[in-house]
């Protein structure tokens, strides 16, 4: 655990009476890209929501530390302003609110009270980021996610990430619903944002995404825990051989059997 990491310590969480996370530990240092893979129902997306502070889930023990400081107990917006970003698997529509106004409000929320975001600087930055992500200019006047295709929604998430410049980003199934061309564009966007000042956690079901966003480490999640970690080759092996061998070898059922 370092002061410059997003660190999850023995995290237990549940929804209602149902435990979802059962002692999950993970450390994402700034500057690295980690991937979490796992079967459907392993709790991957739930982990993302719990880190972001979704009100439906209760953390029963353990901690989540952002640069050494616990963020559990903070409102979702406070966590966001501290530098945590979640690219949603299913981004919500906000009718009548344009992307330009939405991102502007989000940036304004990060300024001290009484300080106003400078409009010309803002638009200059927005257009520069849009160009870099190959997002057409007319995007900004559309309502957030309303009537967007799957690819547009994901690109909109990456644009927000580029504008908000988080220190840690969790990308939840960013590849879902994308065709190969959209996947390439979104991945290029994510790669452009990689660097020493950001730690990323990429949650995915398929190795396909990791051909484009090459991770420093790959973790396998099963039944609410990380059961195995490795380098990018682990993803290839999972793709080729499936999850059963790793669950058998490292998972709870495997351990019990041993």
């Amino acid at each position: 655990m370092s002061a410059h990491s997003l660190s999850i310590r023995d995290l237990h969480a549940s929804i209602g009476d149902k435990p979802i996370l059962k002692g999950l530990t993970l450390d994402i240092p700034k500057g690295e890209v980690h991937a979490i893979m796992g079967k459907n129902g392993a709790g991957k997306s739930t982990l993302a929501k719990i880190m972001a502070g979704h009100p439906d889930y209760t953390v029963t023990s353990g901690d989540v530390l952002l640069d050494g400081e616990s963020i559990l107990g903070l409102e979702p917006d406070v966590r966001a302003r501290l530098g945590l970003f979640l690219a949603f698997q299913y981004p919500m529509e906000i009718p009548g609110v344009t992307i330009a106004n939405f991102i502007r409000a989000a940036l304004q929320a990060r300024l001290p009270e009484g300080e106003e975001l400078e409009a010309t600087d803002y638009y200059a930055k927005l257009y520069a980021k849009m160009d870099a992500l190959s997002v057409p200019r007319n995007f900004t006047s559309r309502s957030v996610n309303e009537g967007f295709s799957g690819g547009e929604k994901k690109r909109c998430e990456i644009l927000q990430m580029a504008m908000l410049e988080p220190s840690y980003a969790v990308l939840d199934e960013t590849d879902s619903g994308l065709d190969i061309d959209a996947l390439k564009i979104v991945s290029a966007g994510v790669n452009a944002l990689r660097g020493p000042n950001i730690g990323m956690l990429v949650i995915t079901h398929y190795q396909r995404l990791l051909d484009y966003i090459v991770p420093d480490k790959v973790h396998v999640m099963s039944e609410g825990r990380i059961i195995h970690s490795g380098d990018k080759d682990l993803a290839l092996k999972l793709e080729a051989e499936g999850y059963d061998w790793v669950e058998k070898q490292f998972g709870e059922s495997g351990i019990k059997a041993a």
Binding site: R81, F88, I94, F102, I103, A105, A106, R110
Partner: peptide, 17 residues
């Protein structure tokens, strides 16, 4: 929740919506 995740307080999120 989506808007809060972008840094807007609950009240600001409501206002925006």
């Amino acid at each position: 929740f989506y808007m809060q995740q972008r840094g807007l307080s609950e009240a600001a999120a409501m206002s925006l919506a």
